[in-house]
Design a protein around this nucleic acid. Structure first.
Lengths: 201, 201
DNA sequence: GTCTATAGCGGGATAGAC
DNA sequence: GTCTATCCCGCTATAGAC
């Protein structure tokens, strides 16, 4: 639907909206706040978006597409072992959440604020992203790297990662990379902690 | 502060408020909706609570106190092994989130909507609850049951548990108990999955 | 303790000029 | 594409009768 609608202007406005939605939450962000952040008056906003809902949908679409793309390229360029792929996936996920700290966070935390139509439209994207996770988890299960139920393991891992948004301090000593390694270390057998992705090797 | 204010009436209203806050979110729940759920008119609500903020504070206080109490009694009555204690804690946590499905969920998901004064007042409670978790995690680390950084492990485990609210289906086949066992199994060494708390033993 | 009535505000969205 | 001006609505909270 938005393949046509992808003016650079709209992209930029979407980016700014994502920032505010993360800071304030969707419900508490007013169209006046959005307009001010964009350097225009609130009335002008509706030249770019039909209504406030459409802004949310644009942000979530952007955030999920971006996460999907980053995850795919991370998987494409890492070593082809279950450990490395698990680690690459966790790291990509955390970087879209904690470094960008924008659209993907909105996609996760404001999903419920989407109206049913938008949810229907965007659920494909979300499902594709989650399928990527389940695939990587499957490989790790098949390799005996982790144990348990595929569905539950995926949900637990994603939950642990998603919740980092609530406590992570970007000014602190730990990088997303460190968190990813620590999480993978926690759920895999003791000896199976992968090192950083072949930097010093 | 609310030790004085604990009329049974107010308790009941708080319980109903929690339910709506979970369903709709705090921001989207109007005082009119709250009043209707309570069987009174919106004006009458302010006889029981100074303002909407105070309702949120009451719910969160209730939810955290309840979670704390349930966790403590679960720890007091389980076997005195790191596995059993970890499992008891996870199970208690999930039951307050998924069975009750009310005040504790609000405490976790609407914390940011508290005004600064209420946050200050309630952070003691939240800290006490998290301290309980860190203690149990510490014991498991000391016993070699799990590995990693104490702070990160706690946060990851709590994240995995807290996120269940987003996907758990109460009508489904899995009980909170099952999720707890599966999570503990995932993060502990392969052989160390504890059984249900001494039912068949 | 609950009611009715309403003040007062700020929200989303529109119209039409430029 | 942005502005000004404004409509209309629903929200929180209050006042005073019962």
């Amino acid at each position: 639907m938005n393949v046509v609608n992808e003016s650079p202007r709209r992209k930029e406005l979407t980016r700014l909206a994502a920032q505010l939605f993360v800071q304030e939450g969707f419900d508490r962000t007013t169209v006046r706040m959005l307009a001010q952040e964009m350097g225009i008056k609130s009335g002008s906003l509706f030249h770019h978006f039909r209504d406030k809902q459409e802004i949310l949908a644009a942000v979530i679409e952007e955030g999920t597409e971006n996460a999907l793309q980053i995850a795919r390229s991370a998987l494409a360029s890492c070593d082809n072992t279950p450990q490395a792929r698990l680690h690459a996936m966790a790291r990509a996920h955390l970087e879209t959440l904690l470094t960008d700290r924008n659209a993907h966070v909105v996609a996760l935390y404001e999903w419920r604020r989407l109206d049913p139509d938008a949810r229907d439209h965007l659920s494909h994207l979300r499902d594709a992203y989650e399928a990527l996770w389940e695939q990587v988890i499957d490989e790790a299960l098949a390799a005996g790297l982790i144990q348990g139920d595929r569905f539950l393991v995926s949900r637990f891992v994603m939950g642990a990662l998603n919740w980092t948004v609530r406590w992570y301090d970007p000014e602190g000593p730990r990088k997303p990379e460190d968190l990813a390694r620590e999480l993978i270390g926690m759920i895999t057998s003791p000896r199976a902690v992968p090192a950083a992705p072949s930097t010093i090797v």
